[in-house]
Amino acid sequence: MRLLLIFTFITIVLAWSPEDYEIFKLNDKVRQTIGPETTFYTWLNLINGPKSTSQEIKKAYRNLSKSLHPDKLNFKSSKERKKAEEKYAILSSVNNILRDASRKERYDYFIAKGFPKWKSTGYFYSKFRPGLLLTIFFVYLLISLLHFFALKINRKQNFKRIANLKDEIKTQAWGGSKVAPLDGSDRRLTNETGKIFLVKNNGDVFIEDGEETHLIDENEINLNPGFKDSLIFKLPAKLYNLTFGKVFKPIDMTITYNKPVNEEPEIEKKKKKSKGKKLELPNGKIVYSRKK
């Protein structure tokens, strides 16, 4: 109901008044009869245009009406006389509008802003119709913006997923605790998929792939992609490098990213300070003696 009231209000506000329709129709007649670029002022030869005074308008109308009056012209046929009478009637209507201050003000407004055009059911301003190249450019720009925002969202989701996976692996490796073993030992864990993880006592998590181990680090993901990550840069730069870049200097597409360094939590610093001397037991475990 509210939307209907808003729509009705907008329709009433934007609707042309009867005086506006009168001006539009008369303007169309003048352009059809005298010329497509003709205005009321140019027809009356008013060089000051909208700034013309009422006296200037009155004088210009009298001069033109004398030369166009049907009774002072010789016609070879009734058809020619009829056309002259229509032209004289149009001139009279033009004079009536320019001599009326409110209607003249409306006419001057449309002179400055442009006249709407007749479209089957009423007068409407012509819609902007961009060319093919401009349309392609705007579509490409829109797709690039969507790609950029999707890139940021996906990276945040991947960052969160990796961080959660590390927390889950550490909790399982440390026996359900979120605190590393006090003996300082590293732990191995095989999950339900058969993947082997190595959890260091400092909280780093590695995945073992045969004889190699790879650090799992969410900070490898750049959460703030830059201009070079965007499609609006990458596609034109790649096309340039494949064409003109082979002759001229290619565009540098290298993306630099400085991974943030995680500072050691304050609680871990305090824990290390409270530890004594580091000792290695015969079984390979690392323990700390009590501080004296």
Rank of each mutant, 00 (worst) to 15 (best):
T243H: 07
R187H: 04
K66R: 08
E86H: 04
T33G: 04
P130L: 14
Q172I: 11
T256K: 14
Q55F: 11
T33N: 06
I57R: 00
S289D: 12
L26Q: 04
T171Q: 10
K292Q: 09
K277S: 13
T213G: 09
K152Y: 09
V94R: 03
D252V: 10
S185V: 10
I34Q: 06
N95R: 15
K246H: 13
N224L: 15
V139G: 04
K272H: 14
F248K: 15
F110G: 03
S65A: 13
L3P: 12
E211P: 03
I196Y: 01
S126K: 09
E212N: 08
K285C: 05
K234R: 13
V205P: 00
I34M: 10
R62T: 14
A101I: 15
N96S: 15
G245T: 10
N74F: 13
P236I: 03
N48W: 07
V13G: 00
P265A: 01
F137R: 07
K117G: 11
D167L: 14
S65C: 07
L44C: 00
K272C: 04
D100S: 14
I97Y: 14
T38E: 12
Y123S: 00
D100W: 13
K59W: 05
I267G: 07
I34R: 06
N201V: 11
F115C: 07
L64C: 07
K228V: 11
N222H: 10
G35V: 08
I6K: 00
V179M: 10
S65V: 07
F233R: 02
N241Q: 07
I12V: 04
E218L: 02
D204I: 03
D186E: 14
Y107I: 01
K166A: 08
G114H: 05
F244H: 15
L146D: 00
